[in-house]
Design a protein around this nucleic acid. Structure first.
Lengths: 208, 208, 208, 208
DNA sequence: TATGAATGAGCATTCATTCAT
DNA sequence: AATGAATGAATGCTCATTCAT
């Protein structure tokens, strides 16, 4: 039985080329701390205020210099991607957990529900995902590919169990998910989330 | 037998003065031409490149001076709204036509289908709907209200005819539409559109 | 005994080259009317809001087109000068009246008092005068010369009567006047006007 | 025997952070140099060309980027105020020195004389004073209040010594000073300055 | 002549990114 | 490594002036 991935996704920083330069060296302790700090703050700030927040703002709220932010993430774009990365990482963990469940249909719909719950009102998740996820044509790599894989796994099982209509593909699903999240971007009315989720789930079950 | 839509929803002003000041005077021939030119260009540009395109760009592509754009639309915001206005206007017209149809369910789903078809890859349309769909709390006015009214009419009839689940509200619907459009923003793959539309429609019919 | 100049200073329009093109032809009736209208509005608007008011504003308030304003005053600068012109014209009239008085000292100080009273809170008078009047080196011509002449006349007589210290020159005086007016630009507190006027008058009488 | 000015008026902050945010940290060497450079250039440029000079111009003349100007003074207004600040600061120092003199009347008139000398042809100084002198209603704060305090001190003593008429108030005085400076704005003819100063001083002594 | 539409240089301000300390 | 100062392209908007109707 697979152990749970540590929820903080810490082992990322140097082996995978997200942000910073990809040297083989592990980061110094303080640097690693800063990297995480930036990521945390950025995640929070992006989540609440959207991606238009200037880098200065993030540096300030993190209590560090702009230069430091840029040292870790040479580009705003890369910072955003790193944030997305963490999100996807978290979602992947959750998905893995769900895969353990017995009922494939249940697992699948639970996951959808989870995403909707996490994403409601989270501007960063949405805006960020919409960048890397909405463009379906683009071939995926790294984390996004992983994410898609787990999602596909969940989907397949549910389809094989007859809980989800069979003509749907993973890419359709991601598209739908991102789209729903975006809708909830400005609305934290949970009633709305529920109803939309319900519509989507019913729709995925297929015509009666 | 379907009644005609309440005239309130239909008598959208059709001649002049959207954005800018609403004087009674019709625009001079050349001004009207320019106004429409700007609107056309803006619509296209916004649709393809998003709302961040600078006004200069629009002016250039239209082959006119910046000042002219600002004469017609004193604010970028107003230009956007004018673009949105046209879109909603078109959709309202279509919706009105659909209301003539005998089968309320058919009418409703046809309209959804229409919107999806028109909206695929069209950022401006998405922005348009996002105004009435994204921020649900904000009370609507003018064209957006009209749009919501026609949509509500279509929805109600379909619900009374039992073609659509009854817990759905107009605002949910706009949210969903918006959501779907957003998804199709970067994807003109028609297969995707079809499947998503299908999922949404099935979902709206309700659990079997 | 000289008749009073008509207070509206109408005979200006074509013989003196202020504003418009200096053709010999008198203006058509409606043109003349417009010219005066513009001047009136500009005077009032400049007086209350300062010289930064856009020409559009003036045209609008006058209920005519911008083009018309520009036809009469090819440049904003010229419109301003025309406004100044009227002011000076009025002051010249008044000064002429004062010259009729028996007591030269009285006449002189009355005139100062008049200017202060008229100028208090009148942004246009002040800003305008400060343009054409504050630069003392520049040789005067036209109306400004006239103005200076009358003022000089008042001054001379008062000096000869021993009511004003003799080292003061007309240019000093205009400078002082403009300066006082500017001070009162933003203050309509009449107490202040009084005291400043009093200081200046006492100062002009000379050391006791 | 003249007491020292109340320390409140003197302890103007002298090191850093005028305009911008007032953090406790001293500026880095290069930053301080730039800040002063900007201030110098701005002072000179404002003084000679008025406050309408674009920020670009100032940046160019200082040989630095626009952004740098904005880093130090987030707003044009703040830059202007900083310039004003320096001026008033200098004047306050001078005034404090004068307060040391034995003869209160002498001290007072010397200060006036100083201001006139410094202010002749200096648009920035004029703007500076105009902040505290032009709009008398507005309650003062910070440096302007300090300035007014020292000036008031000088005035009071001179009045108590019988050298200045007693109906004059500090605000009248600033107004007058402002007024005189405005007059000298475009004129560096020292004869003019002298005569005007003389008139004002005599006027302030009061009717004989 | 009158009108007001068109023009575009000009300006304040922001922000991602680079670089000296 | 960290810092934060410097940079300057980019952007929304204004307004004097010109010109077609």
């Amino acid at each position: 039985m697979p152990k749970k991935v540590p929820s903080q996704a810490l082992e990322v920083k140097d082996s995978i080329s997200v942000g910073a330069v990809t040297t083989g060296k592990p980061l110094r302790a303080d640097a690693r701390r800063n990297r995480e700090l930036i990521l945390d703050v950025a995640t929070k700030v992006f989540a609440t205020e959207g991606l238009d927040v200037p880098i200065d703002e993030i540096a300030n709220r993190a209590g560090i210099g702009i230069g430091t932010v840029y040292r870790h993430f040479p580009t705003k774009e890369e910072l955003i991607e790193a944030v997305v990365f963490s999100f996807k990482q978290r979602l992947i963990e959750k998905a893995s957990e769900m895969l353990e469940q017995n009922d494939p249909g249940q697992a699948f719909f639970n996951f959808l529900s989870l995403i909707v719950r996490e994403g409601t009102g989270n501007k960063a998740l949405i805006a960020a995902l919409s960048r890397s996820g909405a463009d379906i044509q683009r071939p995926l790599s790294g984390i996004s590919l992983n994410f898609q894989n787990v999602l596909g796994e969940l989907l397949n099982r549910a389809q094989q169990a007859g809980s989800v209509r069979s003509d749907i593909q993973v890419t359709d699903l991601t598209a739908i998910l991102f789209s729903v999240l975006r809708t909830l971007e400005h609305n934290d009315d949970s009633g709305l989330s529920e109803r939309i989720l319900s519509v989507v789930c019913d729709g995925l079950r297929g015509r009666c």
